[in-house]
Design a protein around this nucleic acid. Structure first.
Lengths: 155, 155
DNA sequence: TTTTTTGCAAAACCTTTGCAGTTGG
DNA sequence: CCAACTGCAAAGGTTTTGCAAAAAA
């Protein structure tokens, strides 16, 4: 489930600020951490731990175990967040790239990223009805996309 | 896995109909399948593959591999559905026990099962905004529950 | 008999952990 | 220097797969 944040999430505009956030926690900027941050700040795409390992360069040979340990650390610091779109490896992305929320079609498996503001009405519905403040950042909203709805007989 | 109370078993456990559905597909009613169906019709609680194995009786010794194979088959037939509430093993339940949809608190991890009708307004919001017919049967809605919201400073 | 299904063992997959050695501050 | 961090290897938890034996129809 979503990480238990022991400390407030950090909004780091760039790698330098991310490094500062790390240092301010008494954590060290090891080579693997620096490379991981650079990778995250070089793209907005969510990455699996495996994909991240590839980006760090097979040459460097950063171990997957270290990657997972660092992902956990970075998540605790609030620089990174992970989520799932379906079965398979978790996806990681930096938190300051903006919140990512997704709709996934259960039929054609298409993934659509949406502007979180567009989900505010949905969130509001959940809040009034149940009192929960919903977030679709860890699990997507799953459903039938318009195309599949009509194709499968309009439900 | 935290399990909230189950909805009352409204319909008569209809193992016979399930058996008919299996037979009509040219599939066989093996011992393990019959036991699995009986287990699913004996409760409304979602079960992990492991929990199911336990219910079939350790004595019988139905292999987990067979259980997974049958779960896949029963899901294809439409008698069973699986979903996830968080990390960890998937949960399986019979489809005719009524749709199950959940809210999970990302802070206290509490699981709340809700009446699908209560989510119709939420679904409607998703439909008008995105054209998707949302279903919260595979992944729950994750959020901060009322208690945790106030405890964490009202967001 | 014929085809499906099973048990067993092994592997696949993703992630975590123990430990001894390395490194950043 | 010394705690934090790493690689490596091994294990953990969940699910899948290959294959020969068993069982449904």
């Amino acid at each position: 489930m979503t990480q238990t944040q022991t400390s407030p999430a950090v909004e780091a505009p760039d790698v330098a600020a991310a490094v500062a956030a790390i240092r301010s926690r008494g954590l060290r900027l090891s080579t693997s951490r620096r490379l991981m941050l650079e990778a995250f700040y070089a793209t907005d795409d969510p990455l699996t731990a495996e994909a991240l390992a590839v980006r760090l360069g097979a040459a460097e040979g950063i171990d997957l175990a270290s990657i997972y340990r660092n992902l956990e650390t970075l998540e605790e610091v609030g620089l990174v967040r992970h989520f799932h779109l379906g079965h398979g490896a978790g996806l990681y992305a930096r938190t300051n790239g903006g919140v990512r929320e997704y709709l996934v079609c259960e039929s054609c498996k298409t993934v659509r990223q949406v502007d979180p503001a567009e989900l505010d009405a949905v969130r509001e519905e959940v809040r009034t009805r149940f009192g929960y403040r919903a977030s679709f950042t860890h699990f997507p909203i799953v459903g039938l996309c318009p195309r599949c709805r009509t194709r499968h007989g309009a439900k």
